[in-house]
């Protein structure tokens, strides 16, 4: 493996990691704060991509599609939370698994009814369709670089919000102890809804950015959901920092595993990594709950 290939794969790995982080950020907060296992997170990823593809089809503008589709996904998430999921925060995990499992089937089918079963095109925006020369003979697609940039900005922004603002303090308080949070007079219900909507927006963003690289099709969110779950448990449920580090780790390990190892082994690498880490630390790298 020469420097050029190595650089390219490393960037690919980090880019995958950044996308996984966008997914895992919402998941880990929802798990951490509401103690809710939410399998519909992958559906929100899918909804984001489909809405963007539809908007792109109408307007021809990727930017416009992005700007509208992200809040639209947040809205879809908020509706989902208010209509169904809210009623399951206090139910057992089994009920949460089942109800979100049922919702996946429903949402997949609704998307299929609206947009059909064949993939919908969402091309790379014109402006970013070229490549960038990084150094010497190493080039990298602009769009992937843009994903990296957006992801990094969002990650930093999220970290700043969670670590340094009042809302972030409430969120952290909620993640580590719900009862104390409500005793502090925090409107936990509202925080829950906001966090859920924000998580949905990030999932939608991840889906939109993945659209031009993978395909926009029904069920596209499920493999990503599972990778994001792996990220969440490795990072420690409820920990943004853990999700970030784990996402990069999984992105890089998965990418290099597929390049360097025989396929049967390469595709198992991240799961083995998860097994090893959890055997060592059963509550993940940065456990939040005591």
């Amino acid at each position: 493996m020469d420097v050029a290939l190595f650089t390219e794969q490393l960037l690919n790995g980090v880019q995958l990691g950044v996308q996984l982080f966008l997914m895992a950020a919402g998941l880990t907060l929802v798990f951490g704060i509401m103690n809710m296992i939410n399998l519909t997170h992958g559906s929100l990823y899918m909804i984001g991509a489909f809405v963007a593809a539809a908007l792109f089809g109408h307007t021809g503008s990727f930017l416009l599609a992005l700007v509208i589709a992200v809040p639209a996904t947040a809205l879809a998430g908020a509706l989902l939370e208010a209509a169904v999921l809210r009623h399951f925060y206090h139910r057992g995990h089994l009920d949460q698994v089942l109800v979100t499992f049922g919702l996946i089937l429903v949402l997949n089918e609704i998307v299929k009814m609206i947009w059909g079963a064949v993939p919908v095109p969402l091309p790379v925006p014109q402006l970013l369709s070229g490549s960038v020369t990084l150094f010497a003979d190493v080039t990298y697609p602009s769009f992937r670089l843009a994903i990296l940039g957006v992801g990094a900005v969002v990650a930093l922004g999220l970290y700043a919000v969670v670590a340094h603002t009042r809302i972030g303090m409430w969120v952290r308080a909620g993640a580590s102890n719900r009862d104390i949070a409500s005793a502090m007079g925090v409107n936990v219900e509202l925080i829950f809804s906001l966090v859920f909507a924000a998580g949905a927006a990030l999932a939608g963003l991840a889906g939109i950015m993945a659209g031009p690289i993978n395909a926009v099709q029904v069920g596209m969110g499920e493999p990503v959901l599972i990778l994001a779950l792996v990220v969440t448990v490795i990072g420690g449920v409820g920990s943004i920092k853990g999700a970030f580090i784990a996402a990069l780790m999984i992105g890089v390990v998965d990418t290099f595993g597929r390049v360097l190892l025989p396929p049967a082994l390469g595709s198992m690498m991240i799961f083995m990594l998860m097994a090893v880490i959890l055997a060592w630390r059963p509550r993940g790298l940065f456990p939040v709950h005591g």
Binding site: V84, D95, L98, V99, F101, G102, L103, I104, L105, V106, N108, E109, I110, M113
Partner: peptide, 12 residues
């Protein structure tokens, strides 16, 4: 699958 999903939710 739509009906099926709703059914699962109903059972829960």
């Amino acid at each position: 699958q739509l009906a099926f999903g709703l059914l699962i939710i109903l059972v829960v």
